[in-house]
Design a protein around this nucleic acid. Sequence first.
DNA 1: TAGATTGTTAATCGATTAACAATC
DNA 2: TAGATTGTTAATCGATTAACAATC
Lengths: 210, 210
Amino acid sequence: MKEIEVPDIVVSRLPLYLRTLEFLAMEGREITSSAELAERLGLNPAQIRKDLSYFGSFGQQGRGYSVKGLIEALRQILNLEREWEVALVGVGDLGRALVHYQGFKDKGFRLALLFDNNPQKIGMKIGGLEIMDSALIPKLIPERGIKIAIIAVPPQEAQKVADVLVSAGVEAILNYAPVNLKVPPHVKVHYIDPVVGLRHMTYYLPRPQQ
Amino acid sequence: MKEIEVPDIVVSRLPLYLRTLEFLAMEGREITSSAELAERLGLNPAQIRKDLSYFGSFGQQGRGYSVKGLIEALRQILNLEREWEVALVGVGDLGRALVHYQGFKDKGFRLALLFDNNPQKIGMKIGGLEIMDSALIPKLIPERGIKIAIIAVPPQEAQKVADVLVSAGVEAILNYAPVNLKVPPHVKVHYIDPVVGLRHMTYYLPRPQQ
DNA sequence: TAGATTGTTAATCGATTAACAATC
DNA sequence: TAGATTGTTAATCGATTAACAATC
């Protein structure tokens, strides 16, 4: 039996389904439907059912989906049944904000290592973690078996940092630097650049008349 | 002559082209090609040429594109020929990081209004801007004609804030709260949720064997 | 049983890309 | 002129969604 390759665009929607389900669970809901999820996410119900069908059958005809059950299933599918330790490189304003961010907790991630190359910052403690010298990345990341890193350094440094992280064994990078990274094919990169989002939206804003 | 509707997926790539071109310009490059842009962005050269062709002809056969010329063209297409004033709601850790973020400057955006509903924070100055009471959104945003807002408040407050912003005339929202917002069709929302990005990538990370 | 909603097929729709004439 | 790269067409590829049988 040949394994069907799941399209990445399908995988990319699963975290949104999971987030919506976790929200419903918090509200105390026990059952939901593809129609309700679609309504909340602005998607088509058939798309949600199709997406889920790549992985199995999780609902009950005539009833819908158990919120708890589908959360469990998506956690398993997304490889979230363990807690992932994450390394953060660059403890500037954004880095500090990420250290204090409460949203990682209980979502499957924990910041475990902080790096910076500024001697002023190295040794400082923040959020209970000591800021380590970036030069120690090749030592500490393999030691801890860390696979996920967040890059929050200035754009000029981002590629160099990425290279070091990848040689240290990192396979997933959340990149806040406004730069496209070159990485080997086995490494995933997710980009967060507010300016890209803003510039996308200005296209639709009113233009000066004539 | 019927106007051809440009697909949103095409528009969404233009800011990436622009970012890459601005980077090339900084490096002093004068000419580039669809092949080079594609290489840097991990895309297909034909796709870039096709995307641009929705808006006109910006290159020269046999030579490529003038970096400066294409930057100009994309700025015009993306409605970036003015500077946009942006309101920020929620001056927590993330909000503060955004206030200090240098990446908005010279990219077409300037934080112009800060709001928070915490009496401790109202009246404080940060980055040269006074934090205003969120209750003043309906007064100050229309006064300044602001069309773009960034939401950086806790998830429970995000929908309420979005509603107020939209009634105040905002038409583009950059939402850092991990919540899907319900807004009228003329309002664009761009979502930034690091957990969604991380959870997408964990799908591809090594799983516990058996 | 009647009503509801899933899971899945097949049709539709839309995006990507190969190929090449145009042309600098 | 020869070489290079655009702009654009048309083919391919892939994603979305309508429709409905299955079934709870």
